[in-house]
């Protein structure tokens, strides 16, 4: 069985989602809340694709034999651009002051879809940090509610350290401990949940600048793996 993704033939097996099949075929579809190790979630919506003309989230939609899927088109990317802009407006994302910059998936997807223009009025939520744990820090205003840490802690670490509380724009990440602080929870730096966060919300301490800015993952290779970022040239006009 197979489908066509942006003109490329993608084989798949029974039970695969569009995302599973694309990842297996080394074809990039943007995603933030998806990780093949975990049950699909479907919250960020940046994996939006058009499948036979209908918009669906690739990470949750079962692949259909013979279907036509469009992903890297201006129509789809323009929606993704707004989604990413919404995440930027909702939280507090000051990349120059963020240790994750350069290895952050939110930022890298924003580069991929060409987000240049800030759009929406910032929500300016009040600051919330949890630095109680000796090895990790949480900046809640960078959390995009992807629940990867929730799933990792629950499904792999068997700890249920993280969960989401509240409704609507009040929804937020919470920690399971008497004080509500990470330091008092069962969380350990060797947990699977410790290195799953796609953004700079759940960060290791003492490691922030081990790799200098400018030499990080997405400084060197774009998130789709194909287009390498060229080192910034010192002189000469770039080609038009």
């Amino acid at each position: 069985m197979s489908f066509i993704l942006d003109g490329k033939n993608i084989p798949f097996k029974e039970g695969d989602t569009i995302m599973d099949a694309a990842l297996n075929a080394d074809t990039y579809i943007p995603h933030l809340c998806h990780d093949p190790e975990f049950v699909p979630h479907g919250s960020c919506r940046v994996c939006l694709v058009s499948c036979n003309g209908r918009y669906v989230s690739a990470c949750t939609q079962p692949a259909v034999d013979g279907s036509e899927v469009e992903s890297n088109t201006e129509a789809v990317n323009s929606i993704r651009r707004e989604l990413v802009a919404m995440l930027f407006a909702e939280g507090v994302h000051i990349c120059p002051a963020c240790e994750k910059s350069g290895s952050c998936k939110l930022q890298a997807v924003a580069y991929y879809v060409g987000l240049l223009t800030p759009r929406y009025e910032h929500f300016n939520p009040p600051g919330r940090l949890d630095a109680s744990h000796p090895d990790m820090i949480i900046d809640f205003n960078r959390c995009i509610l992807c629940e990867l840490c929730v799933r990792a802690s629950r499904d792999m670490d068997g700890k249920r350290v993280f969960s989401i509380s509240g409704r609507g724009s009040e929804a937020s990440l919470v920690i399971n401990s008497e004080s509500g602080k990470l330091g008092d929870s069962l969380f350990d730096v060797s947990d699977r949940a410790a290195d799953i966060c796609p953004v700079g919300a759940l960060l290791p301490k003492h490691k922030g600048y081990e790799v200098p800015i400018g030499q990080r993952r997405y400084d060197i290779t774009a998130i789709d793996g194909a287009a390498a970022r060229e080192p910034v040239k010192k002189s000469g006009k770039s080609d038009d």
């Binding site: 930027f88 000051i94 120059p96 223009t117 600051g127 919330r128």
Partner: peptide, 16 residues
Amino acid sequence: GACALNGGVPAMRNQF
């Protein structure tokens, strides 16, 4: 630049 686009580092005070 970042500050003109998003407020940048000076806007970190917005959380307080």
